[in-house]
Amino acid sequence: MKLLNVKNLRISFKTSKSELLAIDGISFEVNKGEILGIVGETGSGKTITSLSIMRLLPGNAKVSGEILFNNKNLLDLSEKEMDEIRGKKISMIFQEPMTAFDPLYTIGAQFSEVLFKHERIRKEEIKRRSVEMLKLVGIPEAEKRFDQYPHEYSGGMIQRAMIALALLTNPELVIADEPTTGLDVTIQMQVLNLMKRIQRTSNLSMIFITHDLGVISKMADRIIVLYLGKILETGNVKDVIFSPFHPYTQGLVSSIPTLSTSRTGKLHSIPGNVPSLSEIKKGCRFYSRCSQRMEICKEKSPTLFEVSSGHYVACWAVEKNRNLVKMDEQ
């Protein structure tokens, strides 16, 4: 069942000189009880996408398309109706929990604010549920911690508290934007384990945004590979990571050194830098760095087509090879 259905989302930003197309017509869905991973580098638009779902984009952003949440288009809602959904039905986990919490108030006060706003319940009830949630995310001495300030929490603890806050109102969808990027590897592992466990036990839907292919392969059920505002490849996590079709995904997967990488060989690498949005020309957005580019790629932007069940790729070269294979078979 589709919880979130994004159709042909386009986001552009007006600047003093030009209009930059940050998201160029992407469509995806999040099913109930599933983790959708979004992988991308700088400028891919992964954060902008999540902010557009929360309707938190800055004023100079122009959004078109549809974001259907429970079959309601979020883009059509009034600010007041959106307030009911934001933080209640859809909540967010940020990369920097230290800045997401207000340093002047205790964690408890900030939990109470959210709960009171959305549920209007009594003080004792608020505290009971907050402490219960803090316990759930593995914060020891939760009663004591409830009355502490954010700076009294360590880096791993505050990220747990952030997760607890996001889960507090029993949301249907949680968007996690690079939730473990600043954390040490051992703490990252703890937080990832926790998120996965909670998601599985409460059948939560989640969008997990990261640049780290390792993290995403641990967390996600399905993933989207985003590059400069376009989906290049999407499918089940195993299909995309183990047998990627798009040259970009292939390059990305093989360029990451792993513990088993030989010390003597050269690392595979994608040439060039991620271009900036203002440098984008027509045609495929990956054209300038692609190892398999052809004439058509320069002119026409490829669309997603299915390579295997549920696995989609947007690449002319892949499409051509497929057709050749088909012709051979015939």
Binding site: Q188, M189, G214, V215, K218, V253, T258, L259
Partner: peptide, 8 residues
């Protein structure tokens, strides 16, 4: 080492 997350 056990906390290293790798794709594949």
């Amino acid at each position: 080492l056990s906390a290293v997350v790798e794709p594949k």
